[in-house]
Design a protein around this nucleic acid. Structure first.
Lengths: 342, 342
DNA sequence: ACTATCATTGTGAGCGCTCACAGAAGCGAG
DNA sequence: CTCGCTTCTGTGAGCGCTCACAATGATAGT
């Protein structure tokens, strides 16, 4: 199996072996028309025999494009972004692109610039940036990328840059309205870090939905997406004596901590307090009790992102769009009508 | 900010602007010695002014190496692999490598070959393959890669290929012995899919540890890593009438399903049945009750993988090693001495 | 028969960089 | 003052590929 020669196999080797010019081999590889099928077969055979693998560096150098997409990820520790990456990779592969990948520790202008500089050296055909955090970088991204098409994922709803987002406001509205519909009138919130677009949007929408229903917004605490953060936030909520029968929580992990905190105070879920999460992680269904939550379709987010990026690579001057994906409420057992007999 | 010229900036442009030859510019970029510091400053200035970004395709074509590592991931849906990717990226960046990334749907020979073919076209300097599933590919990987150094992550303990693994057997032993030490004598298991090295190793070790302690291995059921799988497995365990006081579970997600199943049968945790998970996902601490589990240090796995790969790139003919990372037991509240008064 | 057209193949140049080499200074030692 | 040495800079070639163009032979139209 290991016929090893020191030199790498090139187009020329294949050309020589199959008795044609290197250009013809190139044509075969790139599926150009105007190659006699008999010739094509001969070349294909030689390619296979020599185990020839085209050098993509040379190809992208000569062709001035690389069939490669770059992803700048942020928050890969969280379920959502990780999920997106998987589906971005899948969609990219299907569209014939390789994926080069960079994870930034924070969305500072400097970090972003560094990542993009590094990636754009690869002549990537397009860039997907996961930008869920509020930062001026989002608006400058286009100019930093200097001509390479960029799609933002999870940027603010209504932004003018090409992007794909989940309608966080609508998600929060679904959650809040669901509780209102159940009869709750005092509805608190434990939000994600307000530096995140999503957290910010959900927070505002929670408030707006309550006001629209003629209810006074309950207290709100800021968490950090982790279960521990949720636990601490609910403790802060509980300290002044909890005056609400339902809590809208920023994500499912925090909801886990919230449930713990509530139980430690002798409060039952959903009898005493109803809880709605956000994300619908696979485990949410198995929490105790199973968590009512707002499903974000991260897979769709990644997939649509790539599709839109590929579209823009084909037509970079088309007016920018923002693709919006609607979230969905998944009702389980952590929500119920308020128990008035308390 | 958009001073836009159509042509890309090259070494020559920088050379011209700073009044030196292109070679000198190249020397500055690559930190070669023997550049007068005055010259260096001038070049650096020009680079900055022109916003010059070296073309990595050209560089890797000329230099015959790319400063790029490839990751072939599998099972990115799971916490462990996703976690590894993050830390692989981090370590790669620190070592000065870019990362190109491919996720395979299954570890078939064909899929693996395809992925490697595609990646090796980039002249990657090294490959990291996450191969947690039993397959002949693992042993053939070296020959498929044709000279490019490969490190396997999560391959079988004791394999001869260069690799980094967690000592799964030891992990399972820790879990089982912990239960034995608590006084349990009838200890069941819900394993992961036995097609995975880890699941297989843990299964065998669970059995071995019990036998060594003079105990008869309780029943064992195979799960699929998901909470639902755990739930179903525990139902199968419960059907014949559960004859054990403790269960070693293949991962934390399944443990979640197992706890649900147990509770539905009126069994309390840990009073009636003790549970040990595996992985220590961040949420495990917040499960109800907090889960005793075996921590795998996925971060270390990824980091060590990259470090070892870089080392092998430097010295490809060094004898292969297998780096082993020890897991650790995290005791929480899902385990307790058996309750004899039942 | 003589061009017009098509399918098929080949040739030159160059993408932006690094390598190996060669030259031009500067400086103390014999 | 010539030699060897170190420090600095420049030149040629070529990495493996694609592009634009030209050239060939076959087929058809008039």
């Amino acid at each position: 199996m290991g016929a090893s020669s020191s030199r790498r196999i090139t187009l020329h080797d294949v050309a020589e072996r199959s008795g044609v010019s290197y250009q013809t081999v190139s044509r075969v590889i790139n599926d150009h028309p105007y190659v006699a099928s008999e010739t094509r077969d001969r070349v294909l055979k030689a390619i296979h025999e020599l185990d020839y693998r085209p050098n993509k560096a040379a190809k992208s150098l000569a062709a001035r494009r690389s069939q490669t997409l770059a992803v700048i990820a942020y928050g890969m520790d969280y379920y959502g972004p990780a999920q997106m990456i998987i589906h971005i990779e899948r969609a990219a592969k299907r569209a014939g692109y390789d994926l080069i990948f960079s994870n930034v520790a924070d969305i500072s202008r400097e970090n972003m610039r560094l990542a993009i500089n590094s990636l754009s050296g690869w002549q990537v055909d397009g860039i997907l940036a996961i930008t869920p955090v509020i930062s001026s970088v989002c608006e400058e991204l286009d100019s930093i990328c200097a001509g390479t098409p960029v799609i933002q994922i999870d940027n603010p709803l209504g932004a003018s840059e090409p992007s794909v987002v989940v309608d966080q406001s609508y998600g929060s509205e679904l959650a809040t309205q669901h509780l209102i519909d159940l009869g709750h009138t005092r509805i608190a919130e434990i939000s994600g870090p307000l530096g995140w677009h999503g957290a910010q949007a959900r927070h505002k929408s929670w408030r707006r939905t309550l006001v629209r229903a003629g209810l006074e917004p309950g207290p709100s605490q800021e968490g950090d997406w982790t279960a521990r953060g949720g636990y601490r936030a609910v403790q802060r909520l509980l300290q002044p004596g909890l005056d609400c029968t339902a809590i809208v929580v920023g994500n499912d992990q925090m909801a886990l901590g919230v449930m713990r905190g509530l139980r430690e105070h002798g409060l039952r879920i959903p009898e005493d307090v109803s809880i709605v999460g956000f994300d619908d992680v696979p485990e949410a269904e198995w929490y105790e009790p199973p968590l009512t939550t707002i499903r974000q379709d991260f897979a769709a987010l990644g997939k649509r992102g790539v599709e839109y990026l590929v579209e823009r690579i084909g037509d970079p001057d088309a007016p920018p769009r923002q693709h919006v994906i609607a979230p969905q409420i998944i009702q389980r057992l952590s929500t119920a009508p308020p128990c008035f007999g308390r």
